[in-house]
Design a protein around this nucleic acid. Structure first.
Lengths: 324, 324
DNA sequence: CTGAAAGCGCTTACAG
DNA sequence: CTGAAAGCGCTTACAG
């Protein structure tokens, strides 16, 4: 038989569909007898309410769009996993929007999500100026990204992280640490802290930026060239993958780590911690970032117009391995 | 103004809702004039059809459930990314079900997906006996997992992979390579090939299995103990993370790689390739696994009762680095 | 070529 | 305490 519907349950239990709906939603007074009969019918038929029909009525679809550059990147994989878990705990489902590292897809997804009546969006992409975020009427939360004035940002303490990493390199004897980062714009707090610390110590800040959209192997070539030419005795990479490229470069060129060159990365995903536990890195609380993003979004869905205090940045920590 | 609906567009264009729907779906004959007027109204109002209402009518929701142990694992992150891309190309949306490494959630998700009327499911979890897969009436495709007789399996050539890895270790001079895998059951083709090759050479096969549900740090302890006690001069790990644990163990205990111990992993995700390019590993075609899974599912959705030939396993390759 | 009406599977005022 | 009816936003026979 085809999938049973409310009507089938009602017929079997000998009641109206209204009553079945009430039992399902625990609404209004119902005699115990009725309740039992209806439940029996539901079980016998293996009835499951149709979530689509429900969404059409209520204002809620129970769906949240999660937009990321790509879950193929372990950092975003972990972030999405944490977001999904927290959303599920709050009764929401995750519609995954993997931009495949492609800026154009983000705008399309924004459209698609609205057509699918998601209740809200969590986004964490690097594409700075996707129009539409400011006009979307949906609750939105951004992870580590400024989208528009009214959109809350969940992030960890990048200023503190940049400081920790730089001071650590200096403490370990580096005198000419190089900063390698994606983009060196004003909002890059990790870079700002690096500059600040270097300036405090009267050292020269040296920054290299490879650009978000640079293919990985091109980035590797850049990193290796920069490292060889700079004569750096330390590297602060603002992501772990780049830090591992520095490690690989040291291996290939016969540098000793940390004696000749100290390496500090950033992010501290579980995948990196497990695979390369020796890497010194600034560990973001990825689990908490995801959970907090979900919580704030759920709150906004419940009270879209509530005034919210800005989220304080989550605290980070330095995990020291043998690379420094 | 609230989100415009079909009625609003119809009113503005001075036509019936039927006509607007026809323009939207390109169905039936329509005068160019009408078509233009309707399109203008749609643009002016910024109208977007409600996907939920559409799903309620048609038999299709356009949603596909993707069930994985967790996208925090880079292999599954890449797999899901590839699946999402391919599904999107075919007009489907991805409902992400991250089991958080927890077998119980899989059954719950199966229920949830049916309630949400997904058009199909792609699953790739390790939980062998989740009831429900055999009775679910939805099109289902499994990635590297046998669920039920009628459910197609997409996988790469594990037999060839196991053989490649083992023969390579022997070719590089290993005489007592140890196999470390998750579970040593009959369906483990990588282990079967290892045994086969060892037997062909008259060497003793030695297998260690850590179990899927073992926490990562416990696994690391096991791996290190096994390696230290076995006196192995080679390691074939059936996943890259375990191979990296072997590398870490060698580093800590002062073994030289590959002179004292050769290490070969399995999976070859982009994250590992980028982060630890020196690792010798059997590279699965993750991108193609995901794409093929999506294609087969889309076919099954289009023709649920079509008889399908079993999918031939996708071919794998050995990527040789400095660890062997 | 175009429109009025029924219906997808539910929930929710409104009656009784 | 329970039910008949309207309605969520669309699509699709069926008329005209």
């Amino acid at each position: 038989m085809a999938r049973p519907k409310l009507q089938d349950v009602a017929a079997r239990a000998g009641v109206s569909v209204t009553t079945v709906s009430r039992v399902l939603n625990n609404r209004g007074y119902l005699s115990d007898d009725l309740r039992r009969r209806v439940k029996a019918a539901i079980d016998e038929l293996g009835y499951r309410p149709d979530a689509i029909a429900r969404s059409l009525i209520g204002r809620k679809s129970g769906l949240v769009g999660v937009v990321v550059p790509t879950v193929a990147d372990p950092f975003f994989g972990e972030l999405v996993s944490a977001i999904e878990r927290s959303l599920a705990e709050h009764g929401y489902k995750t519609l995954l929007c993997d931009c495949q590292q492609n800026a154009e897809r983000e705008a399309e997804y924004l459209d698609l999500l609205q057509a699918n009546r998601v209740d809200g969006i969590i986004t964490s992409t690097h594409n700075r100026d996707v129009a539409g975020y400011d006009q979307a009427e949906l609750p939105i939360v951004a992870v580590d990204r400024r989208l528009a004035a009214h959109i809350p940002i969940i992030r960890s303490d990048n200023r503190a992280g940049g400081r920790l990493a730089t001071e650590h390199l200096l403490a370990r004897g580096s005198r000419a640490p190089l900063l390698i980062t994606a983009t060196d714009h004003a909002g890059n707090d990790r870079a700002a802290s690096y500059r600040e610390v270097m300036s405090e110590r009267g050292l020269e800040a040296r920054v290299r930026a490879y650009g978000y959209s640079t293919p990985v192997e091109d980035r590797r070539a850049l990193v290796e060239t920069w490292l060889s030419e700079s004569g750096a005795d330390g590297v602060f990479a603002t992501d772990d993958l780049t830090a591992m490229m520095a490690l690989e470069w040291a291996h290939k060129t016969g540098r000793r780590v940390p004696d000749d060159v100290r390496v500090v990365g950033y992010d501290g995903s579980a995948a990196v911690r497990q695979g390369v536990p020796g890497l010194t890195t600034v560990a973001q609380p990825i689990e908490r970032l995801g959970a907090r993003a979900a919580e704030v979004l759920v709150d906004r869905i419940a009270a879209p117009d509530a005034v919210m205090a800005p989220e304080p940045p989550l605290s980070i920590g330095l995990r020291v391995g043998w690379t420094s």
